[in-house]
Write a protein that binds this DNA or RNA. Structure first.
Length: 500
DNA sequence: TTTAGGCATTTAAAACTGGGCTT
DNA sequence: AAGCCCAGTTTTAAATGCCT
């Protein structure tokens, strides 16, 4: 971050990094995410020097467009930045560059001052990790009519409910966590107090939001403000488990997740008792089959017996699970395709593999017919075999996470990054390197080249078939019993289709 | 100036295995 | 019989990016 006296220097790149929906933090992506209506002609960075020489008008237009886009993007996040700044008491030009931990910490410090609490010194603690959320093994295959039930801010609610805090932790506390830590019920701890304040604040803002005309300036400001409050509230649990925190408390973090695991497992048990089938569960959500007429009872039980709130998040008409946790694809009642965790949503797979998987899954989810999905997968293999895929769909992007000298393992993106650096490019942690695998022998890293240096005739098409498109489609198809080899078969029927 | 843990996956590197050969 | 080389196979480690 660069500080300039008398100026607020707010960097939109920090903003972009903060938005998890953006896998590539470019201005184009930010503008698209914010839904801004600006024109942006894309000029690749490596082409700029050349264009400056040959087509200066283009570069001028390009620069003006970007300047306008930046201004508009700022205007749409301005309220949020100032809200977050006000809430955390951090300078507005600082709050976006600050990590989540420091935002929480600054909020807590301002609250401590208000309450007359002392602010602890930052300690030097070696972090020991502890058990987190519970993830249930999914039931493999295609399921119809599955309801997803979510707990509403589970960890904050638990912290408030059991008065979990570093200053209520006590040998003789009456709230006993499943892992043995005890917390006094009275007086109210600092963290529950902070969370209650934040939740009440958010409630107030949301009430005010209803009273102002939607889309108005006031509505925008209020909405930005409630988002800022929510962000801080949601980060408090994680903050307590961060070794660098002033209010680090492993006991608090551990007790919170322990109670969380207890809550979700008892919910799973109760759902089964009520005659529902639990397809999957992750931390604070459960996926339920045979839920018609029973879901309401479960929600009621959660409110009465657990003293927590849960709500029906969505209903999948169909959902497919592989054997893997945290990976599935579904189609909701309003025909939305949703893909979670699979290659299709991962930035480190080529666009062609992502697209092939997405469409294969989409056909499967819309029709429920594995053979049609298989046909779709074969189409993509065919496209690659006949070398008809654009180069940009073959680029594999990976992030540089540390300085290049610190890597011990040889990897394609590191080899490429080192080469680019030798060619004069500046590469630092956080940058993404795009490469394409070319034909030849030896390990992958020796065949990876910067995407803009590759021509169609050097592409290793077999790699993209065997290591990109086929594995991605296979993941989806195998969930419904289609063997992977079938993707590579021609598609004509053989005797094996009848007897195999 | 790193909110937490849980998880799958790919690739490279290391460790292992067993056959065939020499000493 | 012991030791060694080599190629193929299996296991482990490193790294990344996702989910809640």
């Amino acid at each position: 971050h660069v500080s300039i006296r008398g100026r607020l220097n707010i960097d939109l790149e920090d903003m972009a990094r903060d938005i998890p929906e953006l896998t590539v933090e470019t201005l184009e992506e930010l503008v698209r995410f914010l839904g801004l209506k600006v024109e942006l002609d894309t000029v690749e960075e490596y082409e700029l020097a050349e264009k400056w020489r040959d087509d200066r008008e283009l570069v001028k237009r390009y620069s003006m467009q970007r300047a306008e886009a930046i201004l508009k993007a700022f205007e749409s996040i301005r309220d949020f930045v100032f809200s977050l700044s006000e809430l955390t008491r951090m300078p507005a030009d600082y709050v976006l560059t600050a990590s989540a931990g420091f935002r929480v910490e600054n909020y807590l410090m301002s609250l401590a001052v208000k309450l007359g609490e002392l602010i602890p010194r930052r300690g030097e603690i070696t972090h020991v990790s502890y058990p987190g959320g519970l993830v249930k093994e999914p039931i493999r295959g295609m399921h119809e009519d599955v309801a997803v039930l979510d707990f509403k801010s589970m960890y904050p609610s638990l912290i408030i409910k059991y008065n979990i805090s570093f200053d209520t932790l006590s040998e003789d506390g009456e709230n006993v966590a499943p892992n043995g830590y005890r917390f006094r019920a009275e007086p109210e701890g600092f963290l529950p107090r902070a969370l209650k304040t934040l939740l009440e604040e958010r409630g107030k803002i949301q009430a005010m939001l209803k009273a102002v005309p939607p889309g108005s300036v006031e509505a925008k400001i209020l909405d930005a403000r409630q988002r800022a409050v929510k962000i801080i509230a949601n980060a408090i649990y994680g903050y307590t488990g961060w070794a660098g925190a002033r209010w680090y408390s492993r006991e608090v973090a551990e007790a919170t997740t322990a109670w969380g695991r207890e809550v979700i497992s008892s919910t799973i048990r109760k759902a089964e008792e009520l005659g529902m089938k639990v397809i999957y569960s992750d931390t604070d959500s459960v996926f339920l089959k045979d839920h018609r007429g029973k879901l309401e009872k479960l929600v009621e039980w959660i409110e009465k017996d657990l003293g927590l709130e849960a709500k029906l998040e969505k209903v999948f008409k169909r959902v497919i699970f592989t054997e893997a946790k945290k990976r599935y694809a579904g189609i909701t009642e309003d025909e939305e395709i949703e893909i979670v965790g699979l290659e299709a949503v991962r930035g480190d797979w080529s666009a062609i593999a992502r697209q092939a998987q997405r469409e294969t899954a989409e056909v499967l989810l819309r029709t429920g017919d594995p053979s049609l999905a298989l046909r779709k997968a074969r189409e993509y293999v065919q496209q690659l075999r006949s070398e008809e895929v654009e180069l940009r769909k073959l680029i594999i992007w990976r992030q540089i996470t540390r300085s290049l000298s610190e890597y011990s393992a040889t990897q394609p993106h590191i080899v490429v990054a080192r080469r680019l650096m030798n060619e004069g490019w500046k590469i630092q942690p956080g940058d993404k390197v795009g490469y394409i695998i070319t034909r030849g022998s030896g390990p992958l890293y020796s065949r990876a080249k910067p995407y803009f240096e590759v021509s169609m005739d050097e592409v290793d098409w077999d790699y993209y078939v065997e290591k990109q498109v086929v594995p991605a489609c296979k993941r989806v198809l195998e969930a419904v019993g289609v063997k992977a080899e079938k993707i590579l078969e021609s598609g004509e029927r053989t005797l094996m289709d009848f007897f195999g």
